[in-house]
Amino acid sequence: MRLELVDIEKSFGEKRVLKGISLTAEGGRAFGLLGRNGAGKTTTLRILMGVISSDAGKVLFDGRPEGLSSERFGYLPEERGLYPKKKIFDQLVYFATLKGMRTREAEKAVDYWLGRLGMSEYKNKRLDTLSKGNQQKIQLITALAHDPEIVILDEPFSGLDPVNARLLKDVVRQTIARGKIVLFSSHQMNYIEEFCDEIAILNGGKIVLSGGLDAIKRSYPRNRLAVRSLEGERIAADFGPACERISENELLLTLPDPGKKAETMKMLSEKYDIDGVSVSEPSLNDIFVQYAGGQE
């Protein structure tokens, strides 16, 4: 299963919102779409789902350009909201049937998911009687009940307590394991790092960075060592400006030549009392700030 966006262009009036977006997401993997507010994430997702049309470019599913019918994807919008005054079960079944399910199938699926997320007791309650976190779990069911091939989750973890966040993580892992495409859009980099194999960073309507997360991290020069030691002060004094003190016992050494890593590590462990030393990789947070920081 393969979803591709090819050279998507979109303008609203005079404003060019998307300037040639291309990305590829594969089944059984999670894809992270990152970008600051207003970078064009929601517009990209809406074009992908066929809510608005693009000015140029195409959306391909398994190489075919027929467009994505609504049964094939599930969507958890960032702006949550269902019918506040309606019974939870009724509206979940309604949304599932809108996504192409038969009523009986939909009822079964909704029952399964209510049970899976521990919400069965609220089945016949009105939505507005639930807490925000529980409403979010109900909303998640609208994205999953019809068993779509592509699951689009926009800020799925915001507003969830740690217990519910773990529940959602399990659901996401299971979905990925079943070979679905999971498309994340989030500002919470730790979750993206945890799940996504591939990312794309949007800035000013363009993709400024994309690819496998490991490869991206590896593309950075591996010339920094993270050192933990009780002799932080002495090391800092010896290394001078090449050493950055993160905390009292944690230091970051930048080497002039990445090839000298092993040599330096050996030297450190001989010369000082070292608790640990490793090659420092940039965090996704660092990468995001670097690429999405300056709005174009």
Binding site: S70, G81, L82, L98
Partner: peptide, 12 residues
């Protein structure tokens, strides 16, 4: 206003 529309327009 309840934002149910976000979901509706992606469903129909």
């Amino acid at each position: 206003s309840s934002r149910a529309m976000e979901l509706l327009i992606t469903s129909a």
